[in-house]
Amino acid sequence: MAAVTLLTKDIQVLKSRIGIDVDQTPRNLAFCNYTILEDRVFVVLDTLNDERFNEHPYTKNDPFIRFYAGAPLTYLTDVHLGAFCLLDSNPRADFSRGDMAELTDYADQAVQIMVEQLVQND
């Protein structure tokens, strides 16, 4: 599963998604809330081993998320619009530096596309 998410005050909008049925979720349930707190990739190799997520509704219920990796969509300094994230119903043993770098690049490309659309609309 993969998604490009944007966080508003109350909801998380899934602007683009693969393998996910919903197009938005309540903001307070968004894994990406943690991603936008920092400038680097946020990784949870196994949600059951992370006390922040082992009781999370999306862990205990459908889609039974066990793995999460998200790169923040950085627009301006300290302005994170959302995240480019990967999800899996199976835990993973590793998410390497190369994986993180490539995920960050996808996030940068997503921001670039959004900025270009913003400029065109202006």
């Binding site: 390497s96 530096r97 190369g98 994986d99 993180m100 770098a101 490539e102 960050t104 690049d105 940068d108 670039q112």
Partner: peptide, 16 residues
């Protein structure tokens, strides 16, 4: 090999 992936992305970002 993994470090090379990071270098490639760094180069991609530098290009951009």
């Amino acid at each position: 090999a993994d470090a090379l992936r990071v270098f490639r992305i760094a180069e991609v970002q530098r290009d951009r």
